[in-house]
Amino acid sequence: MKITGYRSLTTTHDWGRPVGDVNGVVACGITEVPILILETDGGLTGIGLGQHADVDRVFPAVEGKDPRAVTALYDSMLAHVFKSGHAGATYGAIAAVDMALWDLKAKMADEPLWRTLGALDRFVPGYASGLCYGLDDDAFATHYRGWAERGFASAKIKGGKDVARDIERLLAARDILSANTSRPAMMLDVNEAWNAKQAIRHLAEIEKQLDLTWIEEPVRRWDAAGLARISRASRAAVATGENLTGLDQFAPLFDAKAVDVVQTGSVWGITHLLRVAAAAHSRDLPVSPVGYDCNPCAHAAAALPNMIGLEVQDVNWPAGLTVDQQIGDGGIRLGDAPGLGIELDEAALTNATAGGWNSNGGPHKRSRKAGLRLVPDGPLAAE
Rank of each mutant, 00 (worst) to 15 (best):
M1F: 02
K2L: 13
T10V: 13
D14R: 15
V22S: 08
A27M: 04
G29K: 13
I37V: 15
E39M: 11
T40L: 06
D41M: 02
D41K: 03
L49M: 12
Q51M: 11
A53H: 14
D56S: 15
V58S: 05
V58H: 03
F59I: 09
A61K: 10
G64L: 08
V70W: 03
L73Y: 02
A89Y: 07
Y91S: 03
M99C: 14
D110A: 15
A128C: 05
A128W: 06
L135Q: 07
D162C: 09
L171M: 14
A179W: 00
L188K: 07
A193N: 07
A199V: 06
I200T: 05
R201F: 08
H202D: 14
E205Q: 15
E216T: 03
G226N: 03
I230W: 04
S234N: 09
A237M: 12
A237D: 10
G241W: 00
N243Q: 09
Q249K: 08
L253S: 01
A256E: 08
A256K: 01
K257V: 02
K257W: 08
V259K: 03
D260E: 10
V261N: 03
Q263I: 00
A279Q: 11
S288R: 02
S288W: 03
Y292V: 02
N295M: 09
C297Q: 13
A302V: 04
Q313K: 07
Q313D: 14
D314F: 14
P318K: 08
D324N: 14
D324S: 10
G331F: 04
G335H: 10
G341R: 10
G341P: 06
T350A: 14
G355A: 05
W357N: 11
L372R: 15
P376Y: 03
D377K: 12
E383N: 12
